[in-house]
């Protein structure tokens, strides 16, 4: 798999249909891959479809568990978020942070033209 570097905001394909336990279609795999900006070959589509269908089976088993009266869990850690005081702790580190950028100018990251 390679990362699809196209910058388009909108997926050209419609959003995937609701996935059900009957398995996943190749079309759904392609549209999910597009949403994640991954370009995958025909071969990979077939393999991924099989793997995801197997995973869906596992999810079906989990769905069968009775969860009446159980609060949904947003995080597996049984803890609450620590808060941070509103104080500036970061200093300008632009030069270093931009060293990996493939293109830059006037302190800006440059990307292929986007028009919204």
């Amino acid at each position: 798999m390679a990362i699809d570097r196209s910058n388009s905001l909108e997926p050209e394909m419609p959003a995937p249909e609701k996935i059900d336990s009957q398995g996943i279609s190749a079309k759904q795999v392609q549209s999910v891959a597009h949403l994640a900006r991954l370009s995958i070959s025909e071969d990979e589509v077939r393999q991924t479809t099989e793997k995801l269908t197997a995973i869906m089976g596992l999810i079906d088993e989990m769905q069968a568990v009775n969860t009446d009266g159980i609060e949904p869990l947003a995080n597996p850690l049984d803890a609450v978020q620590r808060l941070r005081a509103d104080e500036v702790t970061e200093t300008n580190n632009r030069e270093q942070l931009m060293t990996n950028a493939p293109a830059k100018e006037d302190g800006l990251f440059l990307v292929p033209k986007v028009i919204d």
Partner: peptide
């Protein structure tokens, strides 16, 4: 030059 600049 056909590029967009990003300020974060």
């Amino acid at each position: 030059h056909g590029m967009s600049g990003i300020d974060l």
